[in-house]
């Protein structure tokens, strides 16, 4: 099929970007979206032009490295699906597809569709862990975790850190990302001891990094590849309030 592309090209953080037009004539509908971009890049390379830079690695929806705005939607038209798992059968012959990077303050554009999401790592570094050194761990079955606790902790822990929640949020908030990690530990006995410190420091870090403030529009869960529940955000706030009160 024939596909028209309008792609954001930007040299670096400090230069202005703009949309450029490309047309691919032999797109196969079994191709993945990224394979379609590969095809474009091959054509560009053959013409001696610089390929469109985009992020990707596992191409199976788990590493979280891919992620662009496709027709103005984070990860494209399918809900709960990463960019790499989107296939061209979701488009029609003759379609025009707009491809842009995640455009939020806290994810500066590096080049074209590549952005810097290190802010998410910073939030984890602020406290997204149980502080246990190698060697300190007690026998695994001495910490009992009920089936429900484990499952609900998993639901929150499944986050792949792609940043689509931030990109899709009108407030550019990282509440779902942060909430998911805080909720994971709030739901497990292992994480309880340092829960107050963790929550305060992660939430504060999130704010320092100039992510926006959540107003519960719930868009994030719709675009989240792992369908992480927005209730984790409320859980984060609960934990936060609890920690504040304790202090």
């Amino acid at each position: 099929m024939k596909i028209h592309l309008k792609i954001w090209r930007q040299k670096n953080q400090h230069t202005k970007g703009e949309m450029q037009d490309y047309t691919l004539t032999e797109v196969d509908e079994e191709m993945s979206f990224l394979e379609m971009l590969d095809m474009l890049n091959l054509e560009l390379a053959k013409k001696g032009e610089c390929p469109v830079e985009f992020d990707h690695d596992c191409r199976e929806g788990i590493c979280g490295q891919c992620g662009v705005m496709i027709n103005g939607i984070a990860h494209g038209p399918l809900k709960n699906t990463t960019t790499c798992q989107l296939h061209m059968r979701s488009f029609k012959d003759g379609d025009t597809i707009y491809i842009e990077p995640f455009k939020v303050k806290s994810f500066p554009v590096i080049r074209d569709l590549k952005v810097d999401r290190s802010g998410l790592d910073e939030i984890i570094a602020a406290g997204g862990y149980v502080s246990v050194n190698t060697g300190q761990a007690p026998e695994a079955n001495s910490i009992l975790v009920s089936h429900e606790e484990a499952e609900s902790a998993f639901d929150a822990a499944a986050c792949i850190g792609c940043g689509a929640c931030v990109a899709t949020c009108k407030n550019a908030s990282a509440a779902l990302f942060t909430g998911a990690k805080i909720a994971q530990f709030a739901r497990l006995p292992q994480g309880k001891k340092e829960s107050a410190e963790r929550t305060l420091s992660m939430v504060e870090r999130m704010e320092e990094l100039s992510f926006g403030h959540c107003t519960n529009t719930e868009a994030c869960q719709v675009e989240c590849p792992q369908d992480i529940s927005v209730l984790t955000i409320a859980e984060m706030i609960y934990e936060y309030n609890k920690a504040k009160l304790k202090k």
């Binding site: 705005m69 103005g72 939020v104 407030n171 100039s210 529009t217």
Partner: peptide, 20 residues
């Protein structure tokens, strides 16, 4: 805050399909 946290605007913006 939201204004500050948002970057450049999107040329094509359909983010609203995910919320009311």
């Amino acid at each position: 805050k939201a204004k500050k946290a948002n970057g450049l605007s999107y040329v094509k913006d359909n983010r609203n399909r995910a919320s009311k």
